[in-house]
Design a protein around this nucleic acid. Structure first.
Lengths: 336, 336
DNA sequence: TTGTAGGCGTTATCAA
DNA sequence: TTGATAACGCCTACAA
């Protein structure tokens, strides 16, 4: 840093004590005379003073930084949640962003970083994994964070011992399956995403549950990344097989979008040659054609809820888990 | 905040001085005996110590926070740049995110906030406007930030007196126009975005320049927001007119995507009924059909360049302005 | 209402 | 190598 104007300089210039200067620049309001107040304000303006937020945080023993950790800010799912969370954090705090690039170590690293930053709260969005050792370490780190007075909110599975916004992946995927069978689909494929991601697993299981309730089961399941390219690749692989299923469920929308690209690329058509369904209802869907059948999750609400819990002043007597249900929306991509 | 373990506690437990503890936990390495080092490390681990980054920043007189200010993190243009910037900031610093929701006051507010945070650098991405008063105020705030030792990098127009990553909007839009005429398009419309946004203006002007070099000019120009919905609305308006142009240029891709939706909605087809071109080449384009003609900007590179300049240690003798040229890419949406 | 002084958690200087 | 001790910039009883 360079030469910063300090409060002491402002005080000196205004001819008042440090304490008085502090009070007007920030203090508990109206306990300082109008004359002095003005002098201080003038001095601050002339000098171009800006309070040092670090020093304030040290002196006060707290900060108004909220940490947000997401796997990938380019993925619409996360950017919607982030934007919504931002909305509620912004008026009274600053947001520190961390992206893990979908790597677990990063997740852990950010918890530590945010703790070092004495962030007042931490919002961790993204799926938990089957790596129990990692989940345990993460939960421990989070417990320490909480113990030191911070608030933590998870968006995803309830595995961290923190307040959680919990999408009902399983139940909603099941609803989707039922609706699809209802619509007359007979054979199914699943683009299952990574086997290690709980979100992906839950959705696959829910979907399978729904099918089996109607005496069916997926004819084919392909695993891949939880991304657009993952969907593309998985669908390509699936289409190379002998018999294509009539309807393919991708465990999230970006994968479904990639899958549709794969279909198009082979000169096939959705839904005539193969129907496609996704999950999340990201805003991007407005512009995919044919319109994509999916499960609508109130993404923005989820972001706002998470942020609200994070910003809550209450020490939070009890851990809160907010279940969020999704709604199956049938659109053209699964028309028969 | 709650009860945090302090370095003093660690020192006491390890039976060493504060200074020694500080040295091992962070210090300039290997100036402390192995015995003591181990004792301190052990104590720190047992107590679950994490350094207080605020206190460190105060004591050191500098921080490693980099502020990133974007209009809207949901817009692919910005999220790509943000993600790329993140990539280079991450290894050695933390990123504080600000979204202005496309409001100027917010922009100004963030500069102040970042200054309060004693951010080591500030990256401001987004278009400048025709509001000269605001631009001047912003430039002043930025000058103060710089004067106090911070680094500022703008991505957009070179109006802030800061290091700048400057896309060649005008020249590239002109190239696009020439290419379109070359391809045989005769009549043109322009979805011009907001009249107050310099980026939008430059692109409109460049496009118009290109046309006039071929003895043509836009038959119709419609202004709207710089967003998907803005594009949708503007195109709707345009299609309501008597005679549609054969080719419509939207000043950015998200607008073009909205415009294509408007076309589709009226039962018309791109490019048969009306050709559409955009600008930016956001990743999302991979999945729009028909594929969209646009100007490719190296978005990720721009983000990385901005971050690199921001992270540079050098006091930066000279202000740097990096010009980035775009490349016109003709795709199906303007096929004749 | 105003000022004095001690403290917040670290780093850094200077002896030892 | 180690340890006192003075900063760092600000807040906040407590006293005046």
């Amino acid at each position: 840093m360079g030469s910063q104007v300090t409060l002491a300089q402002v005080a000196q210039r205004a001819g008042v004590s440090l304490a008085t200067a502090s009070r007007v620049v920030n203090g508990s309001e109206r306990m300082v005379g109008a004359r002095f107040r003005e002098r201080v304000l003038a001095a601050a303006a002339e000098l171009g003073y800006t309070a040092n937020a670090f020093a304030q945080a040290v002196a006060r023993g707290r900060s108004d930084v909220v940490g947000l950790v997401v796997p990938d800010i380019q993925d619409p799912y996360f950017s919607v949640i982030a934007a919504a969370a931002m909305e509620v954090v912004e008026p009274s705090g600053e947001m520190m962003l961390g992206t893990t690039l979908r790597r677990q170590e990063q997740e852990l690293r950010y918890v530590t970083t945010m703790r070092a930053r004495r962030a007042r709260a931490l919002i961790m969005v993204g799926s938990r994994t089957t790596d129990n050792a990692h989940t345990r370490r993460l939960a421990e780190a989070i417990a320490e964070f909480t113990a030191s007075g911070g608030r933590v909110v998870a968006v995803g599975q309830d595995k961290l011992g923190a307040d959680t916004v919990l999408p009902q992946n399983r139940a909603s995927a099941k609803d989707l399956a039922l609706a699809l069978v209802e619509r007359g689909h007979k054979t199914f494929g699943v683009l299952a995403g990574p086997d290690s991601l709980l979100t992906a697993r839950d959705r696959v299981e829910g979907f399978t549950d729904g099918l089996s309730e109607r005496g069916k089961r997926p004819n084919v399941t392909v695993h891949s990344d939880f991304t657009r390219d993952g969907g593309y690749q998985a669908m390509s692989e699936l289409l190379d097989r002998r018999s294509k299923p009539g309807c393919v469920f991708a465990v999230n929308d970006v994968m479904a979008i990639g899958a549709m690209a794969a279909v198009r690329e082979r000169g096939l058509t959705v839904p005539d040659d193969v129907a496609v369904a996704g999950f999340d209802d990201i805003p991007t869907l407005r512009d995919v054609a044919p319109s994509l059948t999916t499960v609508r999750l109130p993404l923005a609400d989820m972001g706002r809820m998470a942020a609200s819990m994070a910003m809550a002043d209450q020490p939070g007597e009890q851990r809160r888990v907010i279940r969020v249900k999704g709604e199956a929306i049938l659109r053209d991509s699964t028309k028969l």
